[in-house]
Amino acid sequence: MPTPSRYWREIPQRYRLEAAKCKNCGFIAFPPRQICPRCHSRSFETIVLPEAGKVVTYTIIRVPPQPFSDQAPYAVGIVELDNGVRLTGQIVDCPFEDLKIGQRVKIEFRKIYQDGDAGVIYYGYKFVPE
């Protein structure tokens, strides 16, 4: 479970999918970073990722880590967004038997978990069938 400051720092990514595009070679870094892993350029511009894509692979977590203990079973997948960037995230609102490699999904803003009844609530992106 992140601390409030660790969570807050990633809000532009978690809430708005802000990424960094290398001005030199076009590589898209999500989250943003200082050095392009492709061309080693250090110059980026802010872009926003598209909100739809397709499932590359998926699994159903049945033995969850502690913060997610109430949520299991849940599906997690790697989704390739329409601009080629791949994200890891939960796939929700989809019966497990309907999960498919190649399935079209879109992003929704959801609760990821909360730090008990008294701690911070952590939000972020999840995928739902398109």
Partner: peptide, 15 residues
């Protein structure tokens, strides 16, 4: 960007 979303080690290898 992986653990935050609830993935586990078995989960990654399951993917």
């Amino acid at each position: 960007y992986e653990c935050y979303h609830g993935i586990t080690f078995p989960g990654l290898y399951a993917l």
